[in-house]
């Protein structure tokens, strides 16, 4: 059986290199027959694509897509550099 660390590395590599995603900052954890994806992206479509690519890379695992969608909204407060 492939060690879970290698499975996680393979999935992470797929998320970075697959042309549908190219996402470098997603954390992948494999525990038993479960896989957890964590991180932040700017849209629901990208989260769905990441889930699909991860599932293809490790189809035998039950996936939990915990990636958070962040809305960058308004500019926020200015900082004065004296």
């Amino acid at each position: 059986m492939e060690a879970p660390q290698y499975v996680a590395a393979r999935v992470q590599q797929a998320l970075a290199e697959d042309t549908r995603t190219h996402e470098l900052g997603i954390h992948v954890d494999v525990r038993g027959d479960q896989m957890f994806l964590r991180g932040k992206v700017s849209g629901a479509e990208q989260r769905e694509r990441l889930g699909a690519v991860a599932h293809e890379a490790a189809p035998g695992l039950r996936m939990h897509n915990e990636i958070k969608i962040v809305d960058y909204g308004e500019p926020g407060e200015d900082e004065h550099l004296d």
Partner: peptide, 11 residues
């Protein structure tokens, strides 16, 4: 940043 952009003021 968690926001659209930051603004830095050089005094």
């Amino acid at each position: 940043l968690g926001r659209a952009y930051a603004v830095y003021c050089l005094n």
